[in-house]
């Protein structure tokens, strides 16, 4: 924590950045985002196991961009988000400094270029917990009807509040498909059909892009395990196309490319 505060102070005092986006103490147990603009205020920065939010979500917000060049406290998922955003032309080289950290503390690695982020990410592991693996396995073993019932129950609670969208750093579109009304792709009210369509669309639009940070699930006020949908597609894209998002600055997108020998056992 001290190392992070020192680094933030140095960057702000020296004028290398105008804002440090990091984690601070919120009113509840979870950490919340803070925007530190003065070297004297770096004490507000914290770093512990509660620091899970994907702060990259702020990179494309005009209000944040107006603050000037930013240093972004970046846990591993955030680093991958930065690369994915770069691959999608949403962040440019030199527009930010990533302060690579892990929630458990340790050293702070400042990464001033996208290439440096890419190199750093290449050296990281992105292990998936045993509990998460078990959960996906549980779904694979469920019957079709059981899965159907599970999700029907989950989606019946969806309020269409779009908190999942607001939390997702890759949902940066200025006009989402739900906002299109000619034609109206997704019905506006929160009902079973519209909720299903919204969630299918969200997952499809994140296929090959999602970095599995989990902020959608954490943001959902009614506790729908949205990350599971994304994670299922992260696996599908990896297993079928040997592709992982957010690993390269100039990475292709799994869904906008193809291989002539992609599997087609389901096509007659």
């Amino acid at each position: 924590m001290k190392a992070l505060q020192d680094k933030a102070r140095e960057l702000l005092a020296g004028g290398a950045v105008q804002v440090v986006i990091g984690y601070g103490r919120g009113s509840a147990a979870a950490a919340r985002a803070v925007f530190v603009r003065e070297a004297s205020a770096v004490d507000a920065l914290v770093l512990d196991e509660t620091c899970l939010q994907n702060l990259a979500v702020y990179l494309r917000k005009p209000e944040v961009r107006r603050l000037g060049k930013a240093a972004l406290v970046a846990i591993p998922a955030v680093l991958r988000t930065i690369l994915q955003l770069a691959a999608e032309n949403q962040v440019s080289d030199g527009s930010l400094i990533a302060l690579a950290v892990t929630p458990s503390g340790g050293e702070v690695v400042p990464l001033a270029t996208l290439d440096a982020v890419e190199k750093h990410v290449a050296g990281l592991d992105f292990p998936r917990g045993a509990a998460e693996e078990a959960e996906l396995r549980k779904f694979a073993e469920m019957g079709l009807q059981e899965r159907r019932s599970f999700w029907e129950e989950q989606f019946s609670r969806c309020l269409k509040c779009y908190a999942c969208r607001a939390a997702c750093p890759l949902c940066y579109c200025e006009r989402c498909t739900v906002e299109c009304n000619q034609p109206q792709w997704i019905p506006v009210p929160a009902h079973d059909l519209g909720n299903l369509e919204w969630n299918v669309m969200r997952a499809m639009h994140l296929a090959g892009r999602c970095v599995d940070c989990g902020d959608c699930s954490r943001a959902c006020p009614v506790g729908i395990p949205l990350q599971l949908l994304n994670r299922r597609l992260v696996d599908e894209v990896y297993e079928r196309f040997a592709f992982r998002s957010g690993m390269a600055v100039h990475g292709e997108n799994a869904m906008s490319t193809f291989k002539p020998d992609d599997p087609e056992d389901f096509i007659r």
Partner: peptide, 8 residues
């Protein structure tokens, strides 16, 4: 939004 997925 200029993501250029279409370009690929």
């Amino acid at each position: 939004v200029g993501c250029f997925l279409c370009q690929g």
